[in-house]
């Protein structure tokens, strides 16, 4: 049974197709990443799954049951951390967390312990009596997260939770998500930051223009494309013909030398680096440090869509 099962979801905003026969299957215990540029349909997909938005076609099941606007038994098992900070400006940090936890847990004694735990989880112990307007952007994000997870949901949707936060808060948020997953929560994480998705997600779906372009583990995705690693070799002096010899290797897609370093973009394949180094040794090239960077999700996105992920 999939914890999230979306089939053929179609959503239009007037003439614009926001989701085009979108399919999504997530297993229990995963950290699943929805990766795509702004406007690719990630948030729309989540809002449809959560029954905030109407959709033209498709089926949505959560925990093996059809999801409807009034499926409160299902909603009580879900946590939501929206992209926009959604808290009461007039309530304190603690009151906000207690309010949102109270949407799921009616017993106040039980809730008190959960609120304490959520406060500690996001590291807001020193700010419990503060109102949100007194908090920095990063602390507000943490509060937003605490409000979404305090009731210990089994499935948590994080919609771009690190937008406009400092690196320290970002790391704290990502570590927290990994801890939640380690404690048993299934996580759906949307972002347009490939580094974050690479860092925490066990499986990734790449989206663009409302379509699912590719899905799998990072390694699965990288294997799907023909682009291989990028190799950089420090070599200030190159004997004549060296670049031509390297360029003649059948897996070398692009090569250049900026006076100190050789830059090589390879096709996907085994032993590329070993073959490049063999050519350099044959020609007696003295080289220094060697860097080999495997293809990134941005390369995957670039190859599939023809544009950069951050375009």
């Amino acid at each position: 049974m999939h914890i999230v099962d979306v089939k053929n979801l179609v959503k239009r905003y007037d003439e614009k197709l926001a989701l085009d026969h979108f399919n999504l299957q997530i297993e229990t215990g995963e950290v699943f990443g929805l990766l795509g540029p702004n406007g690719s349909g990630k948030t729309t997909a989540i809002n449809c799954i959560l029954q905030l938005l109407t959709y033209d076609k498709g089926e949505i099941e959560l925990f093996g049951k059809p999801m409807k606007p009034s499926s409160y038994d299902i909603k009580r098992r879900i946590g939501v951390v929206p992209q926009d900070i959604a808290v009461f400006e007039e309530l304190t940090v603690r009151e906000n967390i207690d309010y949102f936890c109270g949407l799921y847990i009616t017993d106040s004694a039980q809730r008190r312990a959960m609120v304490d735990e959520a406060v500690a989880f996001v590291g807001l112990e020193d700010y419990v009596k503060y109102r949100p307007k007194k908090l920095s952007g990063g602390l507000k994000r943490r509060l937003n997260i605490a409000c979404g997870i305090a009731h210990k949901p089994e499935l948590i949707f994080f919609d771009e939770p690190t937008v406009a936060v400092d690196p320290q808060s970002r790391n704290s948020i990502l570590e927290g998500i990994q801890r939640l997953n380690a404690e048993g929560a299934t996580v759906v994480y949307t972002s347009h930051y490939m580094e974050e998705v690479e860092q925490i997600c066990s499986r990734i779906m790449i989206m663009d223009r409302g379509e699912s372009l590719a899905s799998g583990t990072k390694d699965d995705l990288v294997r799907m494309i023909s682009t291989g690693e990028k190799v950089e070799i420090e070599a200030p002096e190159l004997p004549d013909g060296t670049l031509d010899a390297l360029g003649g290797l059948d897996f070398v897609r692009r090569i250049s030398h900026d006076g100190t370093t050789i830059h090589i973009l390879c096709d996907n394949g085994p032993h590329n680096l070993a073959n490049i180094l063999a050519v350099l040794q044959e020609r007696g090239v003295v080289f220094g440090r060697v860097y080999s960077e495997p293809p990134t999700l941005n390369d995957v996105f670039l190859e599939i869509t023809g544009k950069e992920l951050r375009d």
Binding site: N47, L52, R76, A86, V87, F100, Y104
Partner: peptide
């Protein structure tokens, strides 16, 4: 009307 409204509606209370 507001992100807060949207957040509240997806909660577990009718």
């Amino acid at each position: 009307i507001s992100p807060l409204g949207a957040r509240r509606v997806v909660g577990g209370t009718g």
